[in-house]
């Protein structure tokens, strides 16, 4: 995936900021649609490459489910778990479709993560 190094640096920086500034966030990974880790910031326990691959599978399944249900384009997917959640949303980096994945424990607030993800998306898409 050919993305300008400046844009990649911005993307890494945004991932790091979200990880450090929001309570409960365990990892932030931006992945290509076919499951490669493009930019990430994670706590030690998480493997960005694995998260990237899984996120692309989940996102792809989300797309076919929304098509099947005639609900328009899939915008985001949330996996709620006993101890937290995973939030996956589309993002464009240099015109290429990617996915932004946020993995958080139960001390994080979903609405805040959705809001901040939207902000990251806005900033990276105009950069």
């Amino acid at each position: 995936m050919n993305i300008d190094v400046g844009i990649l640096a911005n993307a890494r920086n945004e991932c790091r900021k979200l990880l450090t500034e929001q309570v409960g966030v365990l990892g932030v990974v931006i992945s290509s649609v076919d499951g490669f880790d493009v930019a990430s910031a994670v706590t030690r326990d998480l493997e960005p490459a694995k998260i990237a691959a899984m996120a692309s599978s989940i996102a792809a399944i989300g797309i076919v489910v929304s098509q099947e249900a005639s609900l328009g384009a899939s915008k985001s997917i949330t996996v709620n778990t006993e101890d937290g959640f995973v939030y996956i949303t589309n993002i464009e980096l240099a015109g290429q479709l990617c996915a932004l994945n946020v993995i958080a424990n139960s001390s994080a607030i979903l609405a805040q993560i959705i809001y901040h993800s939207g902000e990251i998306k806005r900033r990276l898409e105009v950069s």
Binding site: D34, S57, I58, A60, I61
Partner: peptide, 22 residues
Amino acid sequence: AVKTDVANTDSTLNKEFTTVGL
């Protein structure tokens, strides 16, 4: 068939789309 094919960004694979879900 339901496909979850997406654009392939891996230059080592000679194909436009690849299955990532199922």
